[in-house]
């Protein structure tokens, strides 16, 4: 084989790989985007579910060609460039095979460009989605309009929410081993084992824990926020569809972690109003016995089961409890 034809065949290999790659990538990307994309879990029940599904699909459209490209290269090499005879292969090496500056620089430039685009895209999506349904800690920087007002009023016990008011609805999620309970500060701070939220409403989930770290994962709502003891972790989403959803704990919290889930429901705004006001009045006696509403609570320092108090009322160990009768000098 003459050197010219060798170079020609080299170009052909590369060109063939690129053509197959482009065709496969375009076809699979289109198939994914139009056939699979709209059905990517967890669906489109809330603003964050919809936005994050879009983000996932964009990443897939970028990721698929990468996977196809490398796999195709491996497959092509495996089929085309293997030794079928038993003797040692002829020379294919030479100094040129040890590197190619143009290839190396192009690879670095392209991968860097793609990665930076991904980071910019992710950041824009995070900001545009008001935190995308993820826990932002006690002081969120990304939030819907009116969130601060609603949260402040809720803590002061002066919050209000009514159908079609476009106000943010704060809901407190209290995690403990091994269940979630929910408090509604705008409705007198009643506590409920059911998570019911109104449709077409911005919800502020204030997530905290009474014992170990849990994670509040409202699957179809696309909200996930760790529940930390003595910390409020706030996540936002806007409900956009009626229906049922699942709440699960997604951080290992002990033996019954696997059983820590409950169903929830998005209902119409008027139905929610009815449910909330009814529950507020029927639960009034129970609510009076609860710890006063606060963003975080402190477990009973002596470990008494179920006891918890607003942050600040810690009952410390006594020295006798710590040292027994032998007091340290």
């Amino acid at each position: 084989m003459s050197p010219e034809s060798a170079i020609g065949s080299e170009e052909n290999h590369f060109r063939r790989i690129v053509i197959i790659w482009v065709v496969l990538s375009v076809v699979l990307d289109l198939l994914f985007w139009f056939l699979v994309g709209p059905h990517v879990p967890p669906g489109r029940m809330t603003s964050t579910a919809k936005d994050n599904q879009f983000d996932f699909n964009v990443l897939m459209v970028i990721g698929l060609p990468v996977v196809i490209g490398v796999w195709e290269w491996l497959g092509y090499a495996a089929v085309k460039w293997n030794v079928k005879r038993k003797d040692m292969p002829e020379s294919v090496g030479g100094p040129g095979a040890a590197g190619n500056k143009r290839t190396e620089v192009s690879w670095i430039v392209i991968t860097t460009f793609v990665v930076l685009c991904l980071a910019v895209f992710g950041t824009i999506a995070l900001y545009a989605g008001n935190g995308s349904g993820s826990g932002e800690g006690p002081n969120p920087i990304l939030q819907p309009a009116g969130a601060v007002k609603a949260e402040t009023a809720a803590l002061a016990g002066t919050g209000s929410w009514s159908p079609n008011s476009n106000e943010v609805l704060p809901v407190q999620v209290i995690a403990q081993q091994w269940k979630f309970t929910y408090r509604y500060p705008t409705f007198g701070g009643f506590e409920s084992p059911d998570l019911i939220v109104p449709d077409n409403t911005e919800i502020a989930f204030n997530v905290t824990s009474l014992d170990v770290i849990h994670s509040f994962w409202a699957y179809q709502l696309e909200v996930k926020a760790d529940a930390n003891p003595m910390q409020n972790n706030v996540a936002f989403t806007k409900t956009e569809q009626l229906g049922n959803f699942e709440v699960r704990c997604s951080e290992l919290c002990g033996i019954w972690h696997g059983a820590m889930f409950n169903p929830g429901k998005v209902v119409s705004e008027s139905a929610f109003m009815t449910w909330a006001t009814t529950t507020e009045s029927t639960n009034a006696t129970n609510t009076a016995n609860l710890a006063p509403f606060a963003w975080t609570y402190v477990p009973d320092a002596n470990g008494a089961a179920g006891g918890y108090y607003p942050d600040g009322n810690v009952t410390p160990y006594s020295t006798v409890e710590i040292y027994g009768s032998k007091q340290p000098s």
Partner: peptide
Amino acid sequence: GVSGVFLSDVPVNVTVHGG
């Protein structure tokens, strides 16, 4: 590696973290 990119993206991380 490619699935790691999904995990590194904070919005998509909401779906895939802890599962």
